[in-house]
Design a protein around this nucleic acid. Structure first.
Lengths: 131, 131
DNA sequence: ATTGTTGTACTATTGTGCTAGTACAAGAAA
DNA sequence: TTTCTTGTACTAGCACAATAGTACAACAAT
C-alpha cells in the first residue's frame, strides 16, 4: 500500500491517509477483503505516531470503507459503503445545496454549473481509463 | 438586517454571519448600495464582541460581497462578485471535483448525481419564487 | 472645535483539534 | 502457555483558530 504524506499540506496527516485510502479503494488498487497495512507498520513507515494512523482507520471504518477485526487487522469492506442509499443521498444533497448556494452567490448560472459538472465528470472518466 | 446566530452550530460565529449576509445579498433582501448594520451595533444585538463582527465583514469584503468606507460604514457591493469569471470557475471546479469524488466513493453513479442536482436546482428555484 | 460614530490594530484568553507517549486488551502464532 | 501482533484507551503537549478587551485613527455631524 503506497501512501505519501506531506508535512504541511495544510491538511492534517490523518485526513491525508483517509483520502488516499479512499482513493485507492475507489480506484480498485485496494480490493474488497484485502488487508490494509497494520497501524503500527504504516505509522513507522510514514514516521508518525501510530495513534494518528489509528485515527485515520477509525474514520475509514465510520465511512464504511474498511472493517476492523479487533486483533486480526483492518480489511477493505465488501461493499463500497454500508450506508443506506437514503443516507448517502441525504449527505450528497447537502453538498449539492452548498455548491448551488456558492454558485448563485458568485453569479454563475445554474445551467453553466451543470455544464461544468458534465465536463468534470467526463474528465474523471478519462482519468480512470488512463490508469 | 435580520440575523440569527446559535451558540453551537458547530460553525464559528463569524462564519454564520458571513453566510447569512451572503444569503441576504444573493436573495436580494440586501440590495447593492445598501448599508449594513454597523459593526458595533450588530455586535451588541448579537451579544458578541465587535471584533467578531468585524472579522465577518472583513471576510465579506475579501469575497467582494461588501465594500467598506473607512469611517462611513459598510455597503453592499454593486457587483455580486469582483472575481474574474475564470477565477470563479476555478473555485467551482474544485468544489465539483470534491463532490464527484465523494459520490464515487459512495457508489452513487454520475448520472444519478446529475439528476439529484437537477432536482435541487429546481427546488431552489421554487424557494425563490415563494419568498 | 468638539463629539460621536465608523472601522482598525494589537494583545490576551480560551477552547479545541492534531499529534504523540505510554499502557492496555484480545486474539493469533509458535 | 508464551510470545507476538493486532487494535484500543487515556493522557499530555502543542499549535492554532475563535473570541474578547482595550486603545486607536479617521471622518461626519453638530
Amino acid at each position: 500500500m503506497q501512501l505519501h504524506i506531506s508535512a504541511n499540506d495544510g491538511l492534517p496527516i490523518y485526513l491525508q491517509i483517509v483520502n488516499q485510502v479512499k482513493y485507492l479503494v475507489a480506484s480498485g488498487r485496494l480490493k474488497p477483503g484485502e488487508e490494509l497495512t497494520p497501524i503500527r507498520v504504516l505509522a513507522e513507515r510514514l514516521l508518525v505516531n501510530h495513534n494518528t494512523v489509528a485515527r485515520a482507520y477509525r474514520e475509514l471504518e465510520a465511512a464504511g470503507v474498511v472493517e476492523k477485526r479487533r486483533t486480526a487487522g483492518t480489511y477493505v469492506s465488501d461493499q463500497g459503503s454500508p450506508l443506506a442509499r437514503r443516507e448517502r443521498i441525504k449527505i450528497l444533497t447537502e453538498r449539492i445545496d452548498a455548491l448551488l448556494a456558492e454558485a448563485r452567490q458568485m453569479g454563475v448560472a445554474f445551467d453553466d454549473l451543470m455544464k461544468l459538472m458534465q465536463q468534470r465528470g467526463a474528465a474523471l472518466q478519462t482519468d480512470r481509463n488512463e490508469e
